[in-house]
């Protein structure tokens, strides 16, 4: 069974009596270990799809399962637990807590999973080593460059060892050089066996992933699997 199975997913907003279909009957599958991008112009519904897959939002119709759990049946508390244990988020604007140190930011998800202080520290240090920021632990986010902040956010996303990482325009707020370094980091993590879903509007970034799902007007427009086409090694 696939890690994520999406079946006939719809999300409908009502805005002033008008019905807006942000997602319209979307079905897709994501296998464990895939490096995949969801691409589409702004307003296409790609963020809505990511939010639903990340258990931050719930669909109007349709079902989807994550790691064998039917999410549409889960309570809010169960969804919070899934976000905590199985999902990691990387955002465009980093979304680090400015009052906490780098180390405390990385420890944050573990506070909500009830892990002891010493274990938290150990695992946070290991995650920071993975993104090569082990000597910036005492700094505040504001004292770091954008690229470094994004790496802290990646360390935070990985620290609870999630099944899947969602990255929403992770390079959107970085210069092209730093952005490219971050993409290289994602590539490396993917090669280590992590499942990564990159949400972007930029075809150049999407081109660096092994599979692309293109969304337009809430519908899946095209799925390109370059491994199947033999263009890229899996």
């Amino acid at each position: 069974m696939a890690l994520v199975e999406v079946r006939n997913l719809s999300k409908i907003y009502h805005l002033g009596g008008e019905e807006i279909r942000a997602l319209d009957d979307v079905s897709a599958e994501i296998e464990g270990g895939e490096f995949i991008s969801i691409i589409g112009p702004s307003g296409s519904g790609k963020s809505t799809l990511m939010h639903i897959l990340g258990c931050l939002d719930s669909p109007t119709h349709g079902t989807f399962s994550l790691d064998g759990t039917e999410i549409q049946n889960a309570s809010r508390a169960e969804q919070a637990k899934i976000r905590n244990q199985k999902i990691g988020f990387v955002f465009q604007f980093f979304n680090l807590l400015p009052k906490l140190s780098v180390l405390q930011n990385v420890e944050l998800p573990m506070i909500y999973s009830g892990i002891s202080a010493s274990e938290r520290r150990k695992r946070a240090m290991a995650a920071l080593e993975m993104v090569e920021l082990q000597n910036r632990t005492k700094h505040r986010p504001m004292q770091l460059s954008g690229g470094q902040q994004q790496r802290v956010a990646i360390a935070r996303a990985l620290v609870n060892n999630p099944k899947i990482v969602f990255a929403d325009e992770p390079t959107g707020n970085l210069d092209s050089h730093t952005g490219s370094a971050i993409l290289a980091l994602f590539k490396r993590l993917s090669e280590e066996g992590r499942t990564i879903v990159l949400v972007t509007h930029d075809p150049n970034i999407a081109a660096r992933t092994t599979r692309r799902i293109e969304i337009r007007d809430g519908k899946i427009a095209e799925q390109v699997d370059e491994t199947l086409a033999g263009l890229k090694p899996r």
């Binding site: 990340g54 931050l56 809010r76 508390a77 919070a80 637990k81 976000r83 905590n84 244990q85 988020f89 979304n95 680090l96 807590l97 944050l108 998800p109 909500y112 999973s113 935070r156 609870n160």
Partner: peptide
């Protein structure tokens, strides 16, 4: 509000 959003995104429940 943003801090609360971040905390919720990383797994804080209603009761947390």
């Amino acid at each position: 509000i943003r801090e609360i959003g971040i905390r919720k995104a990383v797994g804080a429940t209603f009761s947390d």
